[in-house]
Amino acid sequence: MYTQGKVFRYPDNVDTDVIIPARYLNTPDANELALHCMEDIDAEFVHKVAKGDVIVAGWNFGCGSSREHAPLVIKTCGTGCVIAKSFARIFYRNAINIGLPILECEQAAQEIGAGDEVKVDFDTGIITDVTTGKTYQAQPFPPFIQNIIRCGGLLKSLKEGEQHG
């Protein structure tokens, strides 16, 4: 599995309030929520993002609230992957649980430029900046998490476990 698209760059400590402001959280509808993705940090994002595009950010991406709406709107917008130097822990969990690919890679997050064309291979964790030709190796997921991803999310992996267990 892979994604390929252009890069949107954001700084350190992108919080869940700018990813999806709480004033919109009066609905659980992902399509409606996605219209406001990144609104308070980059109002143009939802108009520019195309399927497969990649968010590249600094340290502690997704800090703040536990709202699963945050990874959900990023995924629903069509974003193929988020690469960051680090992720806040609840966002990290939520992204895995809902099937939004995320990768921790300090060097890639440091060097990849806004607007670059990037290809990300989720099986190998190899990130290729097509624009510059440079490649990066992201931290691989532990097998336990790989299984959740392979099953298509936490609940599906639990159901599968029930059948086999």
Partner: peptide, 24 residues
């Protein structure tokens, strides 16, 4: 809810998660 960590004050392990973890 991310502030679920509050109950550590009582000597509990308590942590915030998302909705899918809550469902599970």
């Amino acid at each position: 809810d991310s502030h679920t960590c509050t109950y550590g004050a009582l000597g509990a392990f308590s942590t915030g998660v998302g909705s899918t973890d809550m469902a599970a």
